[in-house]
Amino acid sequence: MTQMSALPFIVVEGNEKKLWNVQATGDWSADTATGRQYATDLLNHMASADNPGLLYHVAKAMGDGTRFTGIECGFFTHLAAAALAG
């Protein structure tokens, strides 16, 4: 089982957890690829830790959606594709 802090988009500082700590490059293709990889990492972690509820907390940490970039687009697109694939 992987530790949640091993996920590349999560930062743990003392008792504080930042569940969506990402920096877009402005390169849409690279950013969507990063988002897809982050989604893969999260899906693998949730399966190994038996913690599907983590998705809710990560999505909530993204905020109200006004700052969505290619990273978030790739992330949710990959999650949707995984859900449709069953």
Rank of each mutant, 00 (worst) to 15 (best):
G26L: 14
Q3G: 01
T66Q: 12
S5L: 04
T2D: 09
N51Y: 07
T77K: 15
N21L: 06
M62N: 04
T2G: 08
A81W: 10
V58N: 13
R36V: 01
A49E: 15
S48E: 15
E16G: 03
F75W: 11
T77F: 11
Q3M: 03
V22D: 12
H57T: 07
L7D: 09
L84N: 13
G70S: 04
G70V: 03
C73N: 06
A30K: 11
F76I: 06
L19A: 02
W28Y: 14
V22W: 04
Y38H: 14
V58G: 08
D27M: 12
G65T: 14
V11R: 13
A80E: 04
L42H: 08
R36F: 09
A6M: 07
G63D: 10
Y38E: 03
K17W: 12
T32Y: 05
K60D: 07
G14C: 07
A83Y: 08
T66I: 05
L79D: 09
D41N: 10
G26S: 09
I71F: 08
G14W: 13
N51V: 02
M4C: 02
E13H: 06
A61G: 01
A47L: 09
D50N: 14
W20E: 03
S48L: 12
L55H: 01
N51S: 14
N51W: 03
D50W: 12
K18E: 06
Q23Y: 06
L43F: 08
N44S: 15
Y56L: 13
Q37Y: 02
M4S: 07
N44D: 09
T66N: 11
A81S: 15
G70Q: 01
N21Q: 05
S5I: 04
L54V: 12
T25F: 04
W20L: 02
A33R: 13
F68M: 10
Q23H: 06
K18Q: 03
F68Y: 04
E72R: 11
H45K: 10
W28F: 13
T25S: 15
G65S: 08
R36D: 08
G14H: 01
I10K: 04
G14E: 07
L55V: 10
G35E: 01
K60N: 05
M62A: 09
H57Y: 05
P8W: 13
K60C: 00
S29C: 02
H78K: 14
L19S: 11
L42R: 14
A81R: 14
S29D: 13
Y56A: 01
A85D: 14
Q37F: 07
F9N: 05
H78G: 00
T40A: 12
A81D: 15
K17H: 05
G26W: 10
A85M: 07
R36E: 06
F68S: 03
K18P: 00
K60W: 05
C73W: 07
G65P: 01
M62T: 01
A82R: 11
